[in-house]
Amino acid sequence: MPAPTLRRATEDDIAFIMETERLPGYERTVGRFEEDEHRAYLADPAWRYLVHPEMGLALLHGIGSRDGNLCLRRFIVTKTSSGYGSVLLPLVLSHVFEETATHRLWLHHVKENTKAAKLYARFGFLHEGIEREAGLRPDGSRFDLVNLSLLRPEWASRRG
């Protein structure tokens, strides 16, 4: 079997992206966009959507940032506890640091999402702090966000 690869998403991938965002459990940890938002972001050069049509996706925001900061806005697998995250995250990191001028890749995750925390730590992301009650769910409840980042030199030293 060939090694999995990510590709840039197109409008033809919006149904897959929306379906994946709406898998059970992600409403509390990932969030979702509506179709018109996805169309607008796909057309915006500051956004980059990467997909593996069976395993998952990554949404990046801040391409071309003057300071070299890029946000991993969403990282979603189609099947949790499947190992897909451990396969796809290194592909995302390689894309970010080999295909863009990014110096610092940052993200935040819901504090209670311990699976995500373990995955990101395993690939070198460092804890930067907590944004208390920074997230708002559709039901009106608030939640804390944990900030993490990975710098280009850190990524390079882990590869080496």
Score class of each variant (00 low, 15 high):
P2S: 15
A3L: 13
P4Q: 05
P4S: 14
L6M: 11
R7C: 07
R7G: 00
A9Q: 00
T10V: 04
E11W: 00
I14L: 09
I17F: 01
M18V: 01
M18T: 01
M18L: 11
E21V: 09
L23A: 12
P24Y: 08
E27G: 08
T29N: 06
V30G: 04
R32V: 11
R32D: 00
E35L: 10
D36H: 11
H38Q: 03
R39K: 15
A40C: 05
L42Q: 00
D44W: 00
W47G: 00
W47K: 01
W47H: 13
R48H: 01
Y49R: 06
V51Q: 02
H52G: 01
P53L: 11
P53A: 13
E54H: 07
E54S: 11
G56N: 10
L57N: 04
L60W: 05
H61R: 12
R66E: 09
N69R: 15
N69M: 09
L72C: 11
L72G: 08
I76D: 04
V77A: 08
T78W: 03
K79H: 07
T80I: 12
T80H: 06
T80V: 13
S81D: 15
G83V: 07
Y84T: 02
G85E: 03
G85V: 12
S86P: 00
L89K: 03
V92T: 07
L93Y: 06
L93H: 11
V96L: 06
V96A: 10
E98L: 13
T102A: 14
T102N: 03
R104N: 10
L105W: 05
L107G: 05
L107K: 01
H108D: 14
H108F: 12
N113W: 05
A116R: 08
K118L: 14
L119T: 06
A121L: 10
F123G: 04
E131S: 14
E131P: 02
A134K: 08
G135Y: 15
L136K: 15
P138R: 12
P138F: 11
G140S: 07
S141W: 09
L145V: 07
V146W: 09
V146P: 04
V146A: 12
N147C: 12
N147V: 10
N147G: 10
L148Y: 12
S149W: 14
S149E: 13
P153A: 08
P153G: 08
W155Y: 14
A156C: 01
R158L: 07
R158D: 00
G160V: 01
G160S: 06
